[in-house]
């Protein structure tokens, strides 16, 4: 899948089936890149998410660019990004041109209510898979609890949570493990 067309088609598919932002594409990415094609490990997928969170831009686009670059350099980055945004461009333009009234059709909204539930079930399942591999040591567990507290209690933004986690793990790595 070093080839540009493969990257383009893969991200077109992901763009087409991502309902509701960067986190909703996680189950799709894991299925295609970790399970089926085996070109990323679960750990690498989380690293890419961390970087996508802390860098400017839309997480989904950052992730596509990142994976594209790793597979096929600059051209790969561009092919993946175009693949990712093409379904949006086509669908939104179509809706804006002719389909606006269908968005308020009740069957369409039932379908979307169903999809929203499905997206959560998929994310929950991925969380369980990732949990088993990534929260194994006490150090990791501690960082997880700190991160959750920062988000839930102190309303930290994602960027700061990741910066704090990076500092914590540097401190733990330097002073407690040798």
């Amino acid at each position: 899948m070093r080839n540009l067309k493969d990257l383009f088609v893969l991200f077109c598919k992901i763009g087409l089936f991502t309902f509701g932002g960067g986190y909703a594409m996680l189950p799709l990415l894991k299925d295609e890149l970790v399970n089926k094609r085996r070109i990323l490990t679960e750990e690498e997928l989380l690293d890419i998410y961390a970087i996508g969170q802390c860098t400017p831009g839309i997480i989904a686009v950052n992730t596509a660019t990142f994976i594209g670059y790793r597979r096929a350099g600059n051209k790969g980055a561009i092919a993946s990004t175009i693949g990712m945004i093409l379904p949006s461009l086509l669908i939104i333009t179509l809706i804006a041109l002719v389909l606006k009234q269908y968005m308020y059709n009740s069957y369409v909204s039932y379908a979307f209510a169903g999809i929203r539930v499905g997206v959560i079930a998929l994310i929950a399942s991925v969380v369980i898979d990732l949990w088993q591999k990534n929260i194994r040591s006490y150090a990791n567990g501690t960082i997880f609890v700190i991160a959750l507290a920062l988000l839930g209690i102190f309303n930290f933004s994602a960027v700061w949570v990741i910066i704090v986690a990076a500092l914590c793990s540097l401190i733990i790595g330097e002073f407690f493990k040798k």
Partner: peptide
């Protein structure tokens, strides 16, 4: 160390 924090972000 960042990976568990990303897990927290995803769960949140």
């Amino acid at each position: 160390g960042i990976r568990p924090a990303v897990m927290a972000l995803i769960i949140f």
